[in-house]
Design a protein around this nucleic acid. Structure first.
Length: 467
RNA sequence: GUCCCCAUCGUCUAGAGGCCUAGGACACGUCCCUUUCACGGACGCGACCGGGGUUCGAAUCCCCGUGGGGACGCCA
């Protein structure tokens, strides 16, 4: 039987980091076992589902490059089917109409809580078997077995047993005519031939209810695998304050999609001491049964480290597009500076994100925006600054071919000419090029500024130095 | 309140009864490299939640606590 997994988000918000990991694990499990990955949009909550959220989820999946083999299916397009299955259940005596108002139900729950027992629907209409009547409060409830228990083998949590006495007759069709989650998922997973349901931990207690529905429908339940949650760095539930922002925010912040995936795959799963995984390796090694049992905290520091690993090892050509995007976002004119691949080589050891890289690249795409007073005082006002800059200017001006190695030589020659060490020339030159005392190696920095602009900046610095 | 799940360095994790004096990674600290900042390298700091069992032997198995999380909707 072909393994089929699905990612089934409800479009009530963007795709956040927790959803992205669930999607990744579903995708990996299907790929690892040579199966198929299905995308389904669970939009039966008409109050909260939006078209924009659907698009945001699709965008997020695309950015992460988690391609689905089938779908997206939309539950709202399958209404006929849910209706039919529900009616079959009523005819078979496995479901029934009920008419309590929300107020009545709230009161019932409040009373039970008061009495210290678990709030459950009391089954008032369960055995009446009266013909359906028109009523704005009419819902369909599933006849959950009253006794016995549900046992299932969760692929990550192990054996879980649930007493039916803990469950009640859940609503499967709302008064607004839409099916509820627990019912629609089961019908969908059956129809879509899902073999492995991989989803968040918060669904474990829905699982026994769903298994009872599978049983009522006479269908074997699929395999279940419940993933532990991702917590914020403070150990609290993820919220907007931590990482629960859209995955697209990580693009904006300068993270590579495969770095995000690599970080996520290690959050709750591991393969010995290995930290870096290519997509092919993830697919080869991942097994949902190896997923950890406990919740993990999201740590931006480690994501940053992984991102830099890729910045350092990826082909600059492959990274160029990402950097260009960041540079444009930052408002730079790409034509006014060096090739992105050169910038990447110069900055890959110095930036953890592409955004940081674009910020540091400002010195090559725009005039010096800010002069660091301490840098000017220390290096431009130094006694050797003027002779050093003058010597470098002369060397650079005499160059007929503009290459890094030649720039390097020119700086060395300038130092030799005034009888000083490299540092005495490099530091004032660095300040002249950048306005600060921090930059990539001085030869690359000057090279990327370009000959004409470099000479101009040295002249400007000389003025600042008071020459 | 009731039910379910979970528990190794600050964080992510390795660990399936002896290989554990508990390993790796991030972060942090010191040093080396060095024209700045990084990168890289070396070293260091740092954990088995507590208590009972079982066993010749327990981070690993069992029980009880404790702590954390989740759920109890006509949300998913």
């Amino acid at each position: 039987m072909t393994v089929r997994t699905r990612f089934a988000p409800s479009p009530t918000g963007y795709l956040h980091i927790g959803g992205a990991r669930t999607a990744l694990y579903c995708w990996l499990e299907s790929q690892h076992r040579g199966g198929e990955f299905i995308l389904r949009i669970e939009d039966t909550d008409r109050e909260r589902s939006t078209e924009a959220a659907v698009q945001a989820i699709l965008d997020g999946m695309k950015w992460l490059d988690l391609a689905h083999d089938e779908g997206p299916y939309y539950q709202t397009l399958r209404m006929q089917r849910y209706r039919q299955v529900a009616e079959d259940l009523i005819r078979a005596g496995k479901a029934y109409y009920a008419y309590e108002t929300r107020e009545e139900l709230d009161a019932m729950r409040a009373q039970q809580m008061e009495a210290g027992i678990k709030p459950r629907y009391n089954g008032a209409y369960r055995e009446r078997s009266e013909p359906a009547r028109e009523d704005p409060n009419r819902v369909i409830r599933f006849k959950n077995p009253a006794t016995g228990s549900v046992v299932f083998q969760d692929k990550v949590k192990g054996r879980i047993e649930w007493s039916n006495e803990e469950l009640d007759d859940l609503v499967i069709f709302r008064s607004d005519g839409y099916p509820t989650y627990n019912f629609a998922v089961v019908v969908d997973d059956i129809d879509m031939k899902i073999t492995d349901v991989i989803r968040g931990d918060d669904h474990v207690n829905n699982t026994p209810r769903q298994i009872n529905i599978y049983n009522a429908l006479g269908v074997m339940a699929p395999q279940f695998a419940h993933l532990p949650m991702i917590l914020g760095s403070d150990g609290q539930k993820l919220s907007k304050r931590h990482g629960a922002v859209s995955v697209m925010q990580y693009r904006d912040d300068g993270y590579l999609p495969h770095a995000v995936l690599n970080y996520l795959v290690r959050l709750g799963w591991s393969h010995g001491d290995q930290e870096i995984f290519s997509r092919a390796q993830m697919i080869e090694l991942f097994d949902v049964a190896d997923v950890n049992h406990s919740a993990a905290r999201f740590d931006l520091e480690k994501l940053g480290w992984i991102n830099q690993q890729y910045l350092k090892s990826d082909d600059p050509m492959a990274l160029a597009g990402h950097l260009e995007w960041q540079l444009r976002e930052a408002g730079f004119d790409l034509a006014s500076g060096p090739a992105c691949t050169d910038v990447i080589v110069a900055l890959r050891d110095r930036a953890r994100t592409l955004k940081e890289m674009a910020e540091k690249a400002a010195i090559w795409y725009a005039p010096i925006a800010h002069w660091d007073d301490a840098a000017v005082a220390k290096h431009l006002k130094a006694a050797t600054a003027v002779p050093a800059l003058t010597a470098v200017h002369a060397q650079l001006a005499g160059m007929t071919e503009w290459k890094v190695e030649l720039v390097h030589k020119a700086i060395e020659d300038a130092a030799a000419a005034i009888g000083e060490g490299m540092g005495k020339v490099a530091q004032p030159l660095r300040v002249a090029m950048t306005g600060t005392q921090v930059s990539p190696s001085i030869d690359h920095t000057v090279y990327l500024v370009g000959q004409k602009r470099a000479l101009q900046r040295i002249s400007d610095a000389l003025k600042r130095a008071g020459a």
